[in-house]
Amino acid sequence: MSDPIAQLIFLIVKAILLPVLIVLFVAFVIYFERKFAGFFQARVGPTYLGPWGSLQSFGDIFKLMSKEDVTPARADKPVFKLAPYIAFIPAFLVMAVLPFGPVGGEPNLFGYRFDYVIANFDAGLVLFLAMCALGVYGVVLAGWSSNSNYSLLGGLRAGAQMISYELAMGFSVVGVMLMAGSMSLVDIVDRQAGNFWDWYFIPQIVGAVIFFIASIAELNRTPFDLAEAEQELVAGHLTEYSGMRWGMFYFAEYVNLVVVSAIVSTLYLGGWRAPLEVLDFIPGPIWLFLKICVLIFLYMWIRWTIFRYRYNQLMSIGWKVLLPLSIANLAVTAVVVSLVG
């Protein structure tokens, strides 16, 4: 078997296996979210299905699939039906450029070279930002097409919020890009080789914090969950959705959570690399998985601890605090990079 054919087979295997694994993982992320919420709230969380309730998500999925799928009578039906997919698919596409282990180098599997990335794409970072922006459409269209004022307000809030925070996010990412000299996520991880003090979260600490905060807004989680602010807008853009269509939005949210955690660890926490060189014997995917888990826990911790911002406060944080800070960070990084290297 020649190398290109082996690569093609590897590619197909990776392209099928990775989304499947992520979906399985997401089912457990949802379970853990509920379990952690229970612990934070002095409850027990799900307990019935499976050991410690761990199969709860699968039960939920079956329940959602068996539920009636209601389309409001005066909704914009094609858009209403399309919106969940628009929200769902971009979340998965980012995985294509995400390195979860070493790329390139010596043959490592059955005498062939196995790259731990689906597509070593030069503009991987741009793809991530593009997919983030595309995800907004799902929310906005859902809000628009539902023909409900709650949905509309939720959708508008989500649109404005995500666009505002994407700017700060974009600028903070450029800092990493300058330091790595590349937009490929594979290269960015390679530049962070070494121990944990070589990772970008130390020189780019401002950028990392801004990115993390902006990513909470991107993920629509407390304190920036204004789009579906339960207490004001019932469920925001999801108000009119039911059954599996609602489930797809919900699922997309958690796929996004996993993907964004992966991106944060790739950009700032050394991706799949071990925190110390001594620990390199543990394979890369495991390190990436651990980092994702820690970040997800952090997101959950924040969600179940603090209050929600008001809409104008959210906007003023985005435009008056995060954006100037990220631009300043970018300027400083640019100067330092051009002077030092």
Partner: peptide, 8 residues
């Protein structure tokens, strides 16, 4: 005001 934990 958006926190459910405290409610519990």
């Amino acid at each position: 005001l958006g926190t459910q934990t405290f409610f519990c």
